[in-house]
């Protein structure tokens, strides 16, 4: 014989209790506030970053007193003046900016065919292989990848050993500008392909077939159909690659060997080598400003594109 207790299982009782609790804590008259309550934890977490920016701003307005090694109490703009006038920072900024533009161009050149083949190939095995080859380095982290390049490009590395076999004297392949750029391209490829792929998926295959049936060769189809339609993806990918490579730390540090510092390395040195927090904070804030302006301008010109979250409500 069934008791009423068995007919009404424990889990239901627990659920009812939780339900009452939820209703007591957040009555249905507060319903309109619910989404804001759900967003609150995320807003608080990201708020840590905003707090960080405020503190950077505060620190950037204080100068280091070299006699006591304390930060000054009163605010001054001296750090900004130093950053803008000293040649060293202009050199580093120029090197980073130039580097990030070159890296972006090369990365997009390789990422586009990769993404195109991955999206268009009829073979699902090939698609999976390309995806895995993309995600593996993406998930391994910069340090391990840079370590791999050290083994390959080092003075006694694989490339030099192989060159030695055919009688070419060892070359210095590491700790120079091209090595850093090469490492950055490899680091950026997965980001670029992953930003491009959705944009290419959105281009119907029929469009290309139509262009071909009207007599366009693949180069013309590519030039006048695929490339213009993939512009949002290209902009998004280019933007991500420019900002990430402009602000990268690990690759210039490891493959540049301290001679090819980018902005991030200069900031790190200000904090941990010379201990001039004010100057480091000034550099950080200016980098954040440049990055945000870059992103902002592109968003205004081309729209947020792939980066938009929850934009498309169905």
């Amino acid at each position: 014989m069934r008791t009423p207790r068995a007919a009404y299982p424990v889990t239901w009782r627990v659920m009812d209790m939780l339900e009452r609790l939820a209703a007591a804590v957040w009555p249905s008259s507060f319903q309109r506030g619910l989404p804001y309550l759900m967003l609150l934890p995320a807003i608080v977490l990201v708020g840590l970053l905003v707090l960080g920016l405020v503190q950077i701003g505060d620190t950037s307005l204080r100068v280091l007193d070299t006699s006591t090694f304390l930060m000054s109490e009163d605010y001054t703009l001296a750090n900004y003046q130093r950053v803008l006038t000293e040649n060293f920072f202009a050199t580093v900024a120029g090197r980073s900016l130039m580097g990030s533009l070159i890296v972006t161009a090369i990365t997009l050149l390789f990422a586009f065919p990769y993404a195109y083949l991955m999206v268009r190939t009829p073979s699902s095995a090939l698609r999976k292989f390309l995806l895995v080859a993309l995600f593996l380095p993406f998930f391994i982290g910069q340090v391990v990848r840079a370590y791999g390049w050290l083994i390959i490009l080092g003075n006694q590395g694989m490339v030099n050993e192989a060159l030695g076999l055919v009688g070419v004297p060892p070359m210095r392949l590491l700790y120079n500008y091209p090595a850093v750029l090469f490492g950055l391209v490899q680091y950026m490829l997965p980001f670029a392909v992953l930003m491009l792929a959705p944009a290419l998926t959105a281009i119907p295959n029929e469009l290309e077939a139509a262009a071909a049936s009207l007599g366009a060769g693949w180069v013309r189809t590519f030039r006048y159909v695929v490339l213009p339609l993939s512009r949002p993806g290209l902009v998004g990918a280019g933007l991500v690659v420019v900002t990430l490579s402009l602000t990268d730390f690990a690759i210039p540090a490891i493959l540049g060997g301290g001679t090819q510092d980018f902005i991030a390395n200069a900031i790190y040195d200000q904090f941990f080598r010379t201990s001039d927090q004010g100057l480091g904070a000034t550099l950080s804030l200016m980098l954040v400003a440049v990055g945000s302006i870059l992103v902002g301008v592109v968003f205004m010109l081309f729209g947020a594109g792939t980066l938009a979250m929850g934009e498309t409500r169905k």
């Binding site: 840590l48 905003v50 900031i267 954040v288």
Partner: peptide, 23 residues
Amino acid sequence: IQIYLLLPFTIPLIGSGIGLMLV
């Protein structure tokens, strides 16, 4: 709110890192 929640991506990593270090 979306733009705000994208801040971790738009602020360069070194900026976020230094800021959080100070906080």
